[in-house]
Design a binder for these strands. Sequence first.
DNA 1: TATATTCCATCTGATTTTCAGATAGAATGC
DNA 2: GCATTCTATCTGAAAATCAGATGGAATATA
Lengths: 299, 299
Amino acid sequence: MHDRLSLDQIRTFIAAAEEGSFSAAARKLGRAQSAVSDLVRRMEEQLGVALFDRASRSPTLTAAGRLLLKDARVIGGAVDFLNFRAKGLSQGLEPELCAVIDVYFPFHAITEAAKHFRQEFPATPLRLYVEVLGGATEPVLDGRASLAVVGGPAPLPEGLSSEPLNGVDIVMVAAPDHPLAAYEGVIPQSELARHVQLVLTERSNRSAGLEYGVMSPTTWRLADLYAKHSFLLGGLGWGSMPLHAVERDLAEGRLTRLATPESPITGRIVPMSAVYRASAPPGPAGRWLIDRLKGCPSN
Amino acid sequence: MHDRLSLDQIRTFIAAAEEGSFSAAARKLGRAQSAVSDLVRRMEEQLGVALFDRASRSPTLTAAGRLLLKDARVIGGAVDFLNFRAKGLSQGLEPELCAVIDVYFPFHAITEAAKHFRQEFPATPLRLYVEVLGGATEPVLDGRASLAVVGGPAPLPEGLSSEPLNGVDIVMVAAPDHPLAAYEGVIPQSELARHVQLVLTERSNRSAGLEYGVMSPTTWRLADLYAKHSFLLGGLGWGSMPLHAVERDLAEGRLTRLATPESPITGRIVPMSAVYRASAPPGPAGRWLIDRLKGCPSN
DNA sequence: TATATTCCATCTGATTTTCAGATAGAATGC
DNA sequence: GCATTCTATCTGAAAATCAGATGGAATATA
C-alpha cells in the first residue's frame, strides 16, 4: 500500500507542532513521550522530509513542516467532519433531507428556514425542490423526497400522513389597466367569464386536471408561478396569486385586487400541510423543519 | 484517542464503494478479501453507521454510506496532496518561493510567469513582492526572500550572486502639454534643468540616495511607480519610465517621448538581473522561475 | 435441475506494529 | 553546579493486522 501514513501520525504531528514540544503533545494526547517521538520520526522517514528542526531543546517546525502542517490540518478537519456526520447518522439523523415545496408557500419563510437549517444541521444536506400544487406529493410517494409542503384541499393519497401548517392567503388580482380592475364591488360570475383567467396548472400528470377556483370558461393554463405573475403584470388576464408574492405589487400599484364571488376582497385562505410517507416519518431534521414551518406566518 | 479511524479503513471503504464488491476491492488493493471485510466491518462499528447494505449479493452503499463516501474522498484527496507535497519537498523542492520583483520589470511577464508557475509547481506557494530599485535586494539579504529581480547597475552587495536577465527599455517622457514636449531634437541639460524632474526613489534606507539619471536640480522624489505615472500624465513634470509601462500612453498620445543627452529617443536599456544569496542558491522552483524570466522580452 | 463460480462473514495463527517504561544525553533554568 | 525538562533510543509486552481456510448464500452456467 502506498499509504504508509497513518491518522495517528497526522494527529500527533499537529499536536506536536501546536504544543511546540513532543512531551507536551504526549501529555495532551494521553500517551507516552516515546510514542510521540517515534511517530514523528517514522512520519519524517516515510515522507522523506524533516518536519522539525531539533537543533534547540524544543523542536521547531522547518519550513517544509510549516507547509505540511497546513495540509495535515486539512486532513484532520476532514476526518473530524466525517466523524461528526457519522455521529449524527448513528443517532438517527437522516443522511439528507429532500423536501418539495409548493410554490404557494411563502418564499422568504423557506429561505429563512433553510438558512437556519444549515446552522442547526450542518452535516445534513438539504435538497429543496419547488413544485406546483399537487405535484409536490409525487416525489414523496415514490420515495425521492421525504417531505412535501402542499397546498389546497387535495385528497391525501394512500400511505401519506399530513400535518397542518398555516394557510396561505390567496387573492384575485389583475393589472390596474385591466377592465376588471375598474369594476366596483363584487364582480359577478358573468363578468368574470368575459375575460381570460390565468390558471396555475401542475406539470405532473398524476392528478391531471386538478385545478381550483376556475371560474372563467376561457383560461390560460400556466405551469409556472413566475410566468403567471408576468402575465398578470402585463395585463393579459386575471387570476389568483398568493398574497405574499404580490404584496409589493399591490402596495406599489402594479396590481389591483379583485373581489370575486368565491374570494372576497379580504382574500381566501388556502390550507397548507406538510406530508410524508406514513411508513417513513421524518427524522430529527425533517421534524425540525416541519415544526419550524408551522411557526411561519401565513403571508 | 478518539480517532480510532484509520486511513487504511478510509481507503478501503472508498475502494469497496467504487468497486461495488469487497473481493474486487481486495484485488485492487492487493490484499486478502477477509482484510477488506474486516476493515469495513470495524469501520461501521466504530462509526456506529451501516455503510453498506448487504441484503443482495454484492454490497451496495446505504444513503449514509453515500454521504460519508464524499467525506472519505475529501480525506483521501487531502492525504494525496500532503503526500504529493512531501514528495516534492523530499526531492529538494523549496517549501515556498518568495521573490521580490523590481517595478521596472514588465508586469505581464511576471503575471504570465506566475500563472505557469502554478501549473508547474502546484504544491509550491509563490509569494511575490514588488519593490522599487535597489529595495528588492534587502529581503534577499536578510533571508525573507530567496530571489529578487533588480534593475540598474547597482553594485552587488556582499554574499549575493546574480544572473543577467533581459534589460528593460527606459524612455524619457512627459505629457503632450508639457513645455518640453514641444522641443525639437535633443533637449540640452540647461533646458531640462528648468523643469521639475520626477524621480523614482526607494523606500528602504539601506542604499539611501541611490538614484540614476538625475539631470535636473529640481526633482520630486516618488516612491511609487503608479504615483510617478500619474504625475507624468498630469503634466506635473518629466521623467523616465519603463517602456512597457507607457507603451499604450505613447501610442494613444497621453505621453510623449523626450530626447535627452543621456537618453536618445530610442531609449536606454537598464540591465536587469536575478539575484540570490550565494549561500542559498535557488532550488528547482526558483531555478525554473529565473530561467523563465530570462526568456521574457524586454518590453 | 444440478453444478460451478463468485461473493461475503468468520475463525485462526503468525506476523507486524504499537506502545509504555526505562535509560541516557543534552539543553535550560535557578 | 544542580535540578529540571526535553528528546532519542532500546526493550519486552500487548495489540492490531493480515492471509489463508472454511462455510453459507446468491448467482451464473450447463
